[in-house]
Structures are given as C-alpha cells and as structure tokens.
Write a protein that binds this DNA or RNA. Structure first.
Lengths: 246, 246
DNA sequence: CGTGAAATTAACCCGTTGGATAAATACTGT
DNA sequence: ACAGTATTTATCCAACGGGTTAATTTCACG
C-alpha cells in the first residue's frame, strides 16, 4: 500500500523516555545551572520534544528537583556499598577519602548541581522530603571508625564525625569544583593524571597525619616510598578506571 | 515660570555611578549567577537606567568580568596586608586559616562569584590578563613558613605550599559555600555563631595537628577543656542535634 | 550667557524562552 | 477489528530580556 507503509515513525517507551529526559536534564543543569539551562536544549538532547518534558516530569523546576534528588540518591546508594567496618581505622579513613575523591571525579555533574542548589540557597532541597530522609551513612561510619581508632590507639584524639565528613568532602570538592579557576591562577593543569594523583595523596596524608599523629611520607609529596598506607596502594585498590576525558 | 522651575532632576556623577553599578552588579551576579542575573535589576539596584550600564561599562559579560576582576583585586589586596613573617610557624598557619575563614564569611559574594566562574569553566578568567597577573602572595608566604617550620622542628614534614593553600581554602570555602545544602542535610544551622566558631577551631586543629604532629585539643572541639577527650564524650558533646527534622 | 560634549532618560526592537493547545499516532484490552 | 487511552508531534504565543536608538538634561569652559 502507498499510505500505511511509510516505515514506523516512533515507538512508545515511557520509562526510557523519562530516563533520557532526566539524563539530558542532568547534563544541561550541570553545564549551565538552573537559570542557564534551556528546556528546548534538554528536549533535543533527550531526542524528544519539549512537550514531553512537561508530560513526563513537569515544568523546569520540577525537572530540576527530580534531577537533584536523583543525584543524591545515586551517591547515597554508592556510599552504602562501602563498608569500612572490617578495616583498620586508618585504612578506613583512607578508603573513605579515596571513595569520595573518585566519586566526585567520576560524577562531575554532582558537584555542579550542588553548587547550583547552593546558589539557590537550597530552596528546592528544603521542599524535598525525599532528600531530607536520605541520610548519608558516612557520618555514622565515621563515628564508629573514630571511636575504634581512639580505643585502639591508632588515633590520638576524637573528632566530631560531622566536621570530619565535611572536611574530607571539602578537600576533594573544592579542588575539583574550582579546578578551572585554580588552574588559571596557578598556571598549571590541576586535572592532569599526575596532579590528581598528587592531590589524592596529599588529602589522605593530611587527614591521617592529623588523626594518627604519624607523619605519612611528606604530607603527600608525590612519588613517595610506601611506608604506611600510601595513596598509590589505596588508589590501586579502589580505583581501576580513573582516567578521564580527552 | 511654569516650565523651567521643576526642581533639579539629576546631577552628574560618572565615577559614583560607575561604582554603584559595579556594586549592584556584584550583588546581582553573586545572588543569581551569570545567566540568572538581570540587567534591568542591576540598573534599578544601582539607582540607574539600563542604558547607563552599557554607557559606563559595557554589555552583560563585560560587566561580569569587571566584577570578577574587582573581587580578585580585593582579596589579593587584603592578603598582602597579612604578614606572617614575624610569627612562629604554627601561629602563622593558624593566622592564615583565620584570615581565610573570616574573609570568606565577610565576603560571601566572592564565593558565589567563584562558583559562577567555575560553572563557566573559567571562560572569562582565561581572557583576563589582569587577574592572571595578580598572583596570590600566600603561596610564597606558605613556602617560607613551612620551610622555617621544618627547620625549627615545629613541623615534621614539608608540604607543597600550593596543596596546603588549596586545602586551607577548601576547608573554609566548601563549608561556607555549601552551608545551605549541608544545613538541610544535617538538620542544623551551620552558620550560627557556635557552629562557625566550632568550624574554625576544627580547621585550625586539623591542619596544625597534621603539620606539627601535636594534638591540638581534640581536633577542634569548641569550648572543651584541655583534657584529652574520649570518643564517648565527643559523641555526646557534638551530636545532640543529629536526629533529623519533622 | 550660550554652546557643545558628557551624562542620563525614555521608548522601542526583536530574538529567545518557558509554557500551552490541539492534533496525530501507537498501543492495550476486548 | 475496534474503541479508548497513552504517548508523541507540530505549532503557537505572550512575556521576558538584552541591547539599541534617539531625545533630553546637566555642566565645563569660553
């Protein structure tokens, strides 16, 4: 026949479409922020029509909130998979730092989304019951690790787990989130493989030195020999596929 | 006469106008980011007309870059005023942390502007010869302080001054820049006076403990007496409000 | 004074953008 | 097959927002 046989034009795929929309939205919001994101751009990137966004998710802000919630869900899920219970306290902390670092490296949109939400003074997050109920397991993990460390004598002093958690996140987050401006200021590429390795080593050395009182190498001077837990060991242990973009 | 005597409508003030425009632009860009900022809003906030922005500065991006450069100029100027040469190494580091912390607290727009610029992958900063020539004096200050500290025995090991500089900035920057989302997540106000004091103490304790090897109180437990604090005590002391909201 | 440049205002232009409407097409169950 | 609903497409639009044009007013200087 002439009219019906014009090749199938499209097929239904609600879930798939929804996922593609959210994925595209995540990329767009991460790249341009909330105000800078373009709804049409998200639609095109999702291989869809703008109308689809409103049909499947809602308006721009709904879309944004859903993306944000998804981002928190994802990191919380991965956090739960990291059990530090069976490790010696210093190794547990090193592992925690290593995880945080690599998660941020592999999920740069997460950093951008958090910055965007903070620019908005967490306006959306406050309205999200979902996110507020997703507690990070890290605080409790850290608390028990620190307690164990103090009791075993590995650590000299106790730390508020929330402060430590924030500090570990800070050391990694700031470096990566601000790598663009910092690279310009310092005139060197902070995202090169060497620079990243050096940074990870420095962070682990700094925190462990503070906690244990033992000097770990030279506070993160790269190619250092392997006394105690070196960053290389940990890195090799946790992160096989660290390489990044072209 | 009826027509000429209608009270003076406006007076000339080029420099003043320019300053008010830049001040208003700083506030607007800091509050909404580059894409979210509204040119009309800046004009109104400056007590001016939109046309004035273009007359005195240039288009939106010129305006933004000028604001950004001004922000860097300001912090660099204050940094230069801080001489750490005559202080004992540990005190110099503590002073540096204290300065960074308080500067960030008193200039929150600076944090927002940096985040905005990083979202733009430092696109504007790269084009700014002005900023690229404004090196922070801190890196060299830190280098000499660390060297002195190692020689005097105050510090156990040398650190890359750039890494240390970034780490100090990170500990303060992340906490403040992300205080909105963190406050929601942890269910407590991280910007209260007590919380801020506690944070400052923690940062100083963390860095100095790592550098000197000596345990400074209990890694930043606030009003705590100088007895070695046990984990239980810390837990009880720090975590009263860890339970989550409604 | 009065005149010309500098500073400021008022009004308009026009592409963009978030959002809405309505029509078309694919599936599902019967 | 067929009806009814779920999904998708094709347009449309009113508001917004950056930028411009042109007219108006102030002031320094002769």
């Amino acid at each position: 026949m002439a009219k019906t046989r014009r090749i199938l034009k499209w097929q239904r795929d609600p879930e798939g479409m929804r996922l593609r929309i959210l994925e595209a939205a995540k990329a767009e919001f991460a790249a341009h922020g909330l105000a800078g994101a373009r709804v049409d751009s998200i639609a095109k990137q999702a291989g869809a029509n703008k109308r689809m966004l409103y049909y499947h998710v809602g308006n721009k802000e709904d879309l944004y909130l859903e993306v944000l919630e998804g981002a928190y869900e994802k990191i919380r899920a991965e956090e739960r998979g990291l059990d530090l219970e069976h490790l010696e306290p210093p190794e547990a902390i090193a592992r925690l730092i290593d995880f945080t670092w690599n998660y941020f490296i592999q999920n740069p949109e997460f950093l951008a989304l958090l910055n965007t939400e903070n620019l908005a003074k967490a306006r959306h997050l406050k309205r999200s019951t979902k996110v507020k109920s997703m507690h990070s397991p890290f605080v409790e993990m850290i608390r028990t690790v620190v307690t164990r460390g103090v009791e075993s004598g590995d650590f000299r002093a106790a730390v508020d787990p929330v402060q430590l958690y924030i500090s570990i996140a800070a050391l990694a987050f700031f470096y990566l989130s601000n790598s663009a401006t910092l690279s310009v200021i310092f005139g060197r590429d902070l995202l090169s493989k060497d620079a990243r390795d050096e940074r990870l080593e420095h962070m682990i050395a700094l925190v462990l030195a503070a906690l244990t009182g033992k000097s770990i190498t030279a506070l993160g001077k790269s190619k250092a020999p392997k006394l105690q837990v070196t960053a290389q060991q940990v890195t090799r242990f946790v992160v096989p596929g660290l390489t990044r973009d072209p």
